[in-house]
């Protein structure tokens, strides 16, 4: 692969503030006012950011933060309170138990496993919605998992580069 992803082991541990800001920016991207097909096809940036941190810094981002982000999404989405909270908690847990295995691969090789996690997350959201009385919205609902899969290497790359300490030219 020509893309050089930063080696996870060589990165300095991200601080809490950095994680916090990345989550805020992901939340902002999720809140962008879009309509129609753009809205349905928009990847879930919050879920991807939660996945990234639960894989790469599992000691910093716990299930509780995933739960809290889910509550924010639920209120802003006007959906059932707890729907996304439950989905994100489960995503954070799965990423936590798989993080040692996932870190063997680089972000491009992680894509097939990430897309499975994303689809599972959407199935949970769909099931809770259907149990609460909604209709099946159609298969295009899962478009967000596909775009999320395509966005994953980009997000991993950006967050990795931002975490990477600048090389000091004066050091030997």
């Amino acid at each position: 692969m020509s893309v050089n992803f930063p080696d996870p082991d060589a990165l300095i541990p991200a601080t809490g503030w950095f994680i916090f800001f990345s989550l805020v920016i992901a939340l902002l991207l999720n809140l962008l006012p879009l309509q129609g097909i753009y809205l349905i096809a928009r990847p879930d940036f919050v879920a991807l950011t939660i996945l990234y941190w639960s894989i790469n810094q599992p000691q910093h981002l716990g299930i509780s933060i995933a739960f809290l982000m889910g509550l924010f999404i639920d209120v802003s989405n006007a959906s059932i309170l707890g729907q996304h909270a439950m989905a994100y908690s489960i995503v954070a847990y799965i990423a936590f138990i798989l993080h040692r295995r996932l870190r063997i691969f680089n972000p491009l090789q992680q894509v097939p496993q990430i897309v499975l996690i994303l689809i599972l997350m959407q199935v949970i959201i769909l099931l809770t919605g259907v149990i609460a009385g909604a209709d099946f919205p159609g298969w295009h609902f899962f478009l967000a998992s596909v775009t999320g899969m395509l966005t994953w290497p980009i997000i991993s790359f950006i967050l990795g580069v931002l975490r990477n300490p600048k090389e000091d030219p004066n050091t030997i």
């Binding site: 716990g62 995933a66 707890g82 729907q83 847990y93 009385g133």
Partner: peptide, 21 residues
Amino acid sequence: GSLTRLLFFVLLSILLMVEDT
């Protein structure tokens, strides 16, 4: 443990959903 925490938050979400709907 993480499984305990997951179960706790899933239970909390279900309670919230029931409360909300």
